[in-house]
Design a protein around this nucleic acid. Sequence first.
DNA 1: ACTATCTACCGCGCTATCCGAGGTAGCAGG
DNA 2: CCTGCTACCTCGGATAGCGCGGTAGATAGT
Lengths: 110, 110
Amino acid sequence: MGSGKIRGQLLKGTTPLLVLTILRNGELYGYEIAQRIRERSGGAFAPSEGSLYPALHSLEAGGALQATWRDSDKGPRRRYYKITPKGGALLAEHEQEWTSFATAMARSVA
Amino acid sequence: MGSGKIRGQLLKGTTPLLVLTILRNGELYGYEIAQRIRERSGGAFAPSEGSLYPALHSLEAGGALQATWRDSDKGPRRRYYKITPKGGALLAEHEQEWTSFATAMARSVA
DNA sequence: ACTATCTACCGCGCTATCCGAGGTAGCAGG
DNA sequence: CCTGCTACCTCGGATAGCGCGGTAGATAGT
């Protein structure tokens, strides 16, 4: 409650970076992407479905991700996402953007 | 232009932290706050008036800042802002929030 | 006197994105 | 049969930054 308000705003714009980073190591499906982000951040980031799925669709529509449906033997079908060359370039851009942003913040808040 | 889109989102939620940090060293008026933020960030952050003034009003309304009008001998009147004890607490909260956020990002993007 | 420029404040409408809540399914265990 | 986990999706509300326009005082140039 109390602290969540600030965080919610800081999170804005980070989802594509987190998603593309996770997908750098291989193909994954949506639900799994959420889990990996949660694990990797030590529980700090847990993008809700209401923000993750739209982000995936947006990245796919922009040509950064390529997706395919595949059946699972133990549950609903899954949509697997793979990073494209264009997505690689976008990831690089996001990484640079984040780095310079974090650097400027460190300088400003010091 | 090219990179501005991502940045605009990353900036969300950082204005109160930047403002409170700048005001930690003393009383300043709005226009000056903008300049200081610009200088201190090396030009990386230049909050527009459309976001700075509402942020100041919001902080004042929340009791984090105390403001007074004062005339200037060389231009329009100025509204000076001073940080309150409550603002100090809010600053601490924002700092902590930012630190844990930046740490989690570093871990996630590494 | 007129005009431009800098200072200094404010509000409005647009947009992006996050979240919570709700909905649709498949499959497994009690 | 019903609960719960997996797995996808969408919609409405809220937040906050930005561009743009507006008001106004003071100064300097032509």
